Amino acid sequence: MVENGQLPAIRQVRYSPAAESAGFGLEVLSFEGLRRMDPARHRERPQRPDFHVLALVRSGRGRHTADFVDHPLGERSAVWIRPGVVHRWADVDGVDGPLVLFEQVAFSGLGAPVEAMTDFGPPCRYIGEEDWELALAGVELLEREHAAAVARGSAGSRALLGHLLAALLLRVGPPGPVWPAGAAGAAGAAGDREVFHRYRRAVEEGFAERHHVTGYARELGYTVRTLTRATRAASGLGAKRYLDERILLEAKRLLAHTDLPLARCGERVGFDDAANFAAFFRRLAGASPGRWREAAAGR
């Protein structure tokens, strides 16, 4: 089974804050601080963090890559790297601005709109001028409150920091997925959220071995129709397409970041037959695994 962080060419980065920030679930630094902490330039190589990174580009130009998509960076661009995404700071030598590193638990329990945003959304987007000024003010306030919490050593400040972080995410993040209440009302929407989160966790654990939605539905105690409704409400994709896209993403990571033979890449994501893997990959990616690998190597 493929597990996060098991590809040798991808550096697994675990949340490891400065000692004084431990216990708060977040910290604020800058691109300048990132460069100073990374003289070996590990930032330019593929890495997979187990925490969130929200970066705001105040000045300069650069590039960021998230799972094979390049994003140009410029003034007022916001980068949100979610846990598990394979990314690299392709060029941030001339970029300035704040970065907020935070764990998922930092804002848990602060409501569906915030928690929903953490699942999906573009890794990079440009922010309007009015929202941008408010976002920078939000980061500054978050940094000041974090410094005060560290100075006091008050664990009770964690709730305050979580609310400030939530406000910042709502300001710069994309709109959260719409969870239609329908005839079931708010309780039905909350139920769909729970269904999707359970399905998502099950897919992360089993996508490399199990490719049929019926098996997940049986394991979780839902119908396929229920899984499909909840997954489409969250991601815009049906349950089957969501599963297929997750398998495809890991296949791309294997092709791009390892030198495994094509057939072996297919085996790592659950295809015992190389022809079936090639057909699956071509149907979703629009190219054969070999052609896709060649194109990825030439980037």
Rank of each mutant, 00 (worst) to 15 (best):
residue 284 L to M: 01
residue 153 G to T: 10
residue 54 L to G: 05
residue 171 R to W: 11
residue 242 Y to D: 11
residue 168 L to G: 03
residue 241 R to L: 13
residue 268 R to W: 12
residue 223 T to A: 12
residue 251 A to H: 09
residue 187 A to T: 09
residue 239 A to T: 08
residue 236 G to E: 05
residue 8 P to S: 13
residue 93 D to T: 13
residue 208 A to M: 00
residue 183 A to G: 09
residue 276 N to L: 15
residue 109 G to H: 09
residue 204 E to V: 02
residue 264 R to Q: 15
residue 88 R to K: 02
residue 295 A to W: 03
residue 128 G to P: 04
residue 295 A to K: 12
residue 295 A to H: 05
residue 63 R to Y: 07
residue 259 D to W: 13
residue 3 E to C: 06
residue 280 F to C: 13
residue 114 V to H: 06
residue 186 A to L: 15
residue 121 G to R: 06
residue 58 R to W: 06
residue 58 R to F: 01
residue 17 P to A: 13
residue 283 R to N: 11
residue 77 S to Q: 08
residue 213 V to P: 03
residue 61 R to V: 14
residue 165 L to Y: 08
residue 268 R to F: 09
residue 226 T to N: 00
residue 66 A to Q: 07
residue 267 E to N: 09
residue 75 E to W: 11
residue 235 S to D: 02
residue 231 T to N: 04
residue 60 G to P: 10
residue 143 E to V: 03
residue 222 Y to Q: 02
residue 97 G to T: 13
residue 224 V to I: 12
residue 80 W to C: 01
residue 166 A to W: 13
residue 49 P to L: 06
residue 109 G to M: 13
residue 178 V to E: 09
residue 145 E to N: 01
residue 39 P to K: 11
residue 2 V to C: 02
residue 242 Y to F: 15
residue 52 H to V: 03
residue 138 G to M: 11
residue 78 A to I: 11
residue 272 D to T: 14
residue 297 A to L: 14
residue 280 F to W: 11
residue 270 G to D: 12
residue 143 E to I: 03
residue 280 F to N: 08
residue 92 V to C: 05
residue 109 G to S: 09
residue 170 L to P: 01
residue 216 Y to A: 07
residue 22 A to V: 15
residue 276 N to M: 10
residue 294 E to F: 02
residue 214 T to M: 01
residue 167 A to P: 00
residue 231 T to K: 03
residue 70 D to V: 13
residue 170 L to F: 04
residue 286 G to S: 04
residue 115 E to G: 01
residue 74 G to F: 10
residue 257 H to Y: 15
residue 290 G to H: 01
residue 253 R to G: 01
residue 162 G to H: 10
residue 77 S to F: 03
residue 142 L to V: 07
residue 97 G to P: 07
residue 88 R to M: 07
residue 114 V to P: 03
residue 117 M to P: 00
residue 118 T to S: 14
residue 199 Y to D: 04
residue 218 R to V: 11
residue 201 R to L: 14
residue 8 P to T: 06
residue 182 G to W: 11
residue 127 I to C: 08
residue 117 M to G: 06
residue 3 E to Q: 14
residue 36 R to S: 13
residue 283 R to V: 10
residue 49 P to T: 09
residue 44 E to V: 15
residue 289 P to I: 14
residue 46 P to Y: 14
residue 118 T to W: 00
residue 285 A to I: 01
residue 241 R to C: 00
residue 250 E to D: 04
residue 26 L to R: 05
residue 132 W to Y: 05
residue 9 A to K: 12
residue 148 A to Q: 13
residue 197 H to G: 04
residue 218 R to S: 14
residue 30 S to K: 08
residue 29 L to Y: 07
residue 194 E to K: 08
residue 122 P to G: 05
residue 214 T to W: 02
residue 154 S to R: 13
residue 262 L to I: 15
residue 89 W to S: 02
residue 277 F to M: 06
residue 176 G to Y: 01
residue 152 R to V: 06
residue 127 I to H: 04
residue 69 V to K: 08
residue 91 D to H: 10
residue 129 E to V: 09
residue 231 T to D: 07
residue 281 F to P: 06
residue 119 D to H: 04
residue 162 G to D: 11
residue 249 L to D: 05
residue 80 W to Y: 02
residue 165 L to F: 06
residue 287 A to W: 01
residue 258 T to N: 05
